[in-house]
């Protein structure tokens, strides 16, 4: 069976939050909407987002590394949030492995969010149902869209193309190749949930300049060499026969 997923390349993610708001924009008026905001223009505004970008720092100055870390539902292959749901509202689609919530069945007991170690579900306090990333299910299966646009909104928006979308069960898909070749890793693998989304680690490009490479034969300074003026003193040529 296919397992659609995202691979997020931390090597190029600059933390611009395009994935956060393009997702909110698409889904609030889409199938999985609305994504309600609370106190939108007041103190401590909050609201439902399917995807958020966090910032981490590692190390001590001056060897500090800064990481931008987008996080949304990882569409686990063995999702702990599905069996615990008492009403069957939380389900995983057979055809493409996307984990979804059926708002008509959800009774708002929040048990599924307790069972997700990644905190990938957010409760809509107004509609009183649990909501989560749907991998833009209403977009990726919309045959009226051209092939190039039948992708999640965050993937299309991302300026650095850090979000790769595809089927991780297909070894030749872009995502599988990226995971294999660039060391894609899952989050919290210890729990055995087998998250489908993977992250690509940071890689450094270094240059080695060898000392002897610095000065080449055709060094421009040679061209500037001033003619060496002869010293004024006597030379052998003057005195010997």
């Amino acid at each position: 069976m296919t397992q659609l997923a995202l691979v997020i390349d931390l090597n190029v993610c600059v933390g611009c939050h395009a994935c956060v708001t393009s997702c909110k924009e698409w889904n609030t008026s889409g199938w999985a909407g609305p994504l309600t905001d609370q106190r939108p223009y007041d103190a401590d505004p909050t609201g439902v987002f399917f995807n958020r970008v966090q910032t981490y720092e590692a190390g001590v100055f001056p060897n500090t590394e800064t990481y931008h870390f987008p996080k949304s539902c990882l569409h686990c292959e063995d999702p702990p949030c599905v069996p615990v749901c008492p009403t069957g509202a939380s389900y995983k689609r057979e055809d493409n492995g996307v984990v979804l919530v059926d708002y008509d069945k959800c009774i708002g007991c929040k048990y599924c969010s307790w069972a997700c170690p990644y905190g990938a579900r957010e409760f809509d306090e107004q509609q009183k149902v649990m909501k989560k990333c749907t991998l833009c299910i209403d977009r990726i299966t919309d045959m009226s869209l051209p092939e190039s646009e039948r992708k999640p909104a965050c993937v299309l928006a991302c300026p650095t193309r850090a979000r790769i979308y595809g089927d991780i069960h297909d070894p030749d898909s872009e995502v599988s190749v990226a995971i294999r070749e660039q060391g894609g890793y899952p989050l919290q693998p210890e729990w055995g949930t087998k998250p489908s989304n993977h992250y690509l680690p940071r890689r450094k490009t270094r240059i080695q300049i060898h000392e002897d490479e610095l000065v080449r034969v055709d060094n421009p300074l040679k061209k500037e060499a001033l003619p060496t003026l002869p010293e004024a003193g006597e030379t052998l040529d003057d005195v010997a026969w």
Binding site: V14, G15, C16, H17, V20, T21, K24, E25, D37, P40, Y41, D44, P45, T46, G47, F49
Partner: peptide, 20 residues
């Protein structure tokens, strides 16, 4: 910040949840 442009975006209900 990448998610706000000068003083234009505190009025934006979504962006101000990122930078409040």
């Amino acid at each position: 910040p990448m998610a706000m442009y000068h003083s234009w975006d505190s009025q934006n209900a979504w962006l101000r949840q990122i930078h409040t």
